[in-house]
């Protein structure tokens, strides 16, 4: 494994001593050249997991190893500097992820300018190369982020992260704020870059349908817990956990005939708040198949079929 989290925990403290169990003992590794899709609804802790993994949040428990080396629980500026050439990230919000006062050139060149301390002018050729590699054009260099569409901005964010040629790229919901047609562009671009650069990727998203096109493996999170993990196609077409099944079934299919024949499978209610969780199955409250034991004991993630890990008592 290139990077491996073991029983990673991230709790946020609230007033009154209560705690938000944002990430609760999640173990997940990413091998070299592998793309892992991490899927969950809002409040599932998927973004917190990604940020805790690479040091943007302090860890509350557990450990993360990168190439076998233990990463610090709390990051300082020096730690980020050390890992800058190895791990990079692209962000969800294409509006907030680019400094509105900087030109596209300054934004993309930032990583090299920080690392090598070279003047910006010397970096121009390389920036143009990356700009064109993400499908933009050299005459965009002097423009400002607000002049671009969401998809174009997201591509600028990709160029900024990849210009330092990292080995691992964390994609934090890079497509959630985009139109479906633009999502496909970004997914395809990331897929191409991953293949040509031999990147490892953690691709965080809130639904599985798009992620399956880029992922080798997929992981599903619910309320801070990892509930299912397996090869992408296998997991998508044969989901085992009741939540994964409902999540996939909820997604509308662009096929009117199929939709007209749909048997409505709705999950009632919404994802509960992850404050002071008790030790039971996180999904028990909404699960149509829940039994008494689901409310008593938290199921462990275990291999139920070769390569398929599920946290459910019923399997």
């Amino acid at each position: 494994m290139l990077i491996e989290a073991t029983a990673l925990r991230k709790f946020f403290s609230l007033s009154g001593g209560r705690q938000v169990h944002a990430v609760d003992e999640v173990s997940l590794g990413i091998a070299e050249h592998e793309v892992v899709g991490l899927v969950g609804e809002s409040g599932s802790g998927k973004t917190t997991f990604g940020k805790t993994l690479i040091g943007l949040h302090d860890k509350s428990g557990g450990e993360v190893r990168y190439r076998g080396e233990l990463l610090p629980a709390r990051y300082g500026a020096a730690d980020f500097r050390k890992q800058a050439s190895e791990i990079q990230m692209i962000f969800q919000d294409p509006y907030g992820s680019l400094n509105p006062r900087m030109t596209i050139f300054e934004i993309i060149a930032e990583g090299l300018a920080i690392r090598e301390g070279r003047s910006l002018a010397a970096l121009r050729d390389k920036v143009v190369y990356w700009l064109e590699r993400v499908g933009l054009h050299a005459d965009h260099l002097s423009r400002y982020p607000h002049e671009f569409s969401g998809g174009q901005r997201q591509r600028v964010g990709i160029a900024r992260a990849l210009i330092v040629e990292p080995k691992l790229l964390i994609c934090d919901e890079p497509i959630s704020a985009l139109d479906v047609s633009v999502q496909a562009q970004v997914v395809q671009l990331l897929g191409e870059l991953q293949a040509s650069m031999g990147l490892s990727m953690l691709f965080i998203a809130h639904d599985l349908s798009m992620v399956r096109y880029v992922s080798n493996r997929m992981a599903v999170m619910y309320l801070g817990s990892l509930i299912e993990l397996g090869p992408a196609e296998d997991l998508y077409f044969r989901p085992l956990h009741p939540y994964t099944q409902l999540l996939i079934a909820s997604n509308p299919e662009p096929d009117p005939e199929h939709e007209r024949q749909r048997q409505d499978q709705l999950i009632s209610g919404e994802i509960p708040s992850p404050v002071d969780l008790k030790a039971h199955c996180r999904f028990a409250g909404r699960c149509p198949k829940a039994e008494a034991r689901c409310f008593e004991e938290r199921p462990a993630l275990r291999e139920v079929l070769p390569g398929r890990l599920v946290a459910c008592h019923l399997l």
Binding site: I54, L56, A77, F80, R81, K82, A84, I87, Q88, M89, F91, Q92, D93, G96, S97, L98, N99, M102, I107, E110, G111, I114, R115, G157, R160, A161, V164
Partner: peptide, 22 residues
């Protein structure tokens, strides 16, 4: 808390750079 500041931290920016650039 903006993503571009986090991105700069990921790229190894020092405090002074963050303060004066971002």
């Amino acid at each position: 808390g903006e993503a571009y500041v986090q991105a700069a931290r990921m790229l190894g920016a020092r405090s002074l750079y963050l303060i004066f650039r971002h």
